[in-house]
C-alpha cells in the first residue's frame, strides 16, 4: 500500500511541473507539439526511473560530500543512452528536441528526486517514485503540448483537428504562448486542488 502511494503521488499530489513547479525549462521549450512533449516525457521516465534505482542501491556507498557529483555522473550516463538511442531510432524527434535531451542531466526534477528520495529510500520505492513522477511529467507535457498544438497549428500529434478555414492562433506556438498557457493551467490546477 505504501509503495503504491509512492507511485501515485507523482500523478497528482507532487505533479512535477504544476504542483511543485519544477522542470519548467523543457516544459516551455518542447511543448510546441504534443509529439515532442511525449518524446521528452518518455526520455525523462527512463532516466528518472533508472537513475533512481541506481542511486538508491548505492546510496550507502557514496560519500555525502561528493553525492551531487556522483548523482550527475549516473544521470548523465542514462541521458547519453537516451540521446544515442533516439538518434538511432527516432531521428525526427531527436532533431526537434535538440539540446533539450542533453539538458535532462540538469533537470531539477531528476536531481531533486535523487537527492530528496532515492538517496534516502529503498530500491523498489525509488523505482516506483521515479516511474510515478516521470509519468506525471509526461502527462503534463502531453497536455500542454496538445493545447498549444491544437490552437497554434490546428493539429494534434500531426492529425488535423480543426475545420478547413481555421487560421491557426500561432501565438500559442511561440514562447509567450507557452508562458501564458502554462500560467493558466497552473492557475486552474490550483483552483481545482483548493476546492477538493
Amino acid at each position: 500500500m505504501g509503495l503504491m502511494r509512492e507511485f501515485t503521488k507523482g500523478l497528482w499530489k507532487d505533479l512535477a511541473p504544476f504542483r511543485v513547479v519544477l522542470g519548467l525549462c523543457p516544459i516551455l521549450a518542447v511543448t510546441k507539439e504534443a509529439e515532442t512533449g511525449l518524446g521528452m516525457g518518455i526520455g525523462v521516465i527512463f532516466v528518472l526511473t533508472c537513475s533512481n534505482v541506481i542511486i538508491s542501491s548505492i546510496r550507502n556507498i557514496i560519500p555525502r560530500q561528493v553525492r551531487i557529483a556522483g548523482f550527475i555522473v549516473i544521470i548523465a550516463s542514462f541521458v547519453t543512452m537516451v540521446e544515442l538511442f533516439s538518434q538511432a531510432y527516432f531521428y525526427p524527434i531527436y532533431q526537434k528536441l535538440g539540446i533539450f535531451i542533453p539538458l535532462i542531466v540538469v533537470n531539477c526534477i531528476i536531481l531533486g528526486r535523487a537527492e530528496a528520495f532515492a538517496s534516502r529510500n529503498g530500491v523498489i520505492a525509488s523505482a516506483l517514485d521515479g516511474l510515478g513522477i516521470g509519468l506525471g511529467y509526461t502527462m503534463s507535457l502531453v497536455l500542454l503540448g496538445s493545447i498549444r498544438e491544437i490552437l497554434g497549428a490546428g493539429t494534434i500529434f500531426g492529425v488535423d483537428m480543426m475545420w478547413a478555414s481555421f487560421r491557426p492562433f500561432t501565438f500559442m506556438a511561440e514562447a509567450p504562448g507557452a508562458f501564458v498557457s502554462l500560467g493558466l493551467l497552473l492557475g486552474i490546477m490550483n483552483a481545482v486542488s483548493r476546492k477538493s
Binding site: 511543485v20 519544477l22 555525502r64 560530500q65 531533486g112 537527492e115 530528496a116
Partner: peptide
C-alpha cells in the same frame, strides 16, 4: 515543503 534539499544535521556540518 518540497522536501528537496534538507540541510545536513548540525554536528555533521561542524565536522565538515
Amino acid at each position: 515543503p518540497l522536501r528537496l534539499f534538507e540541510p545536513a544535521p548540525k554536528e555533521e556540518r561542524a565536522e565538515n
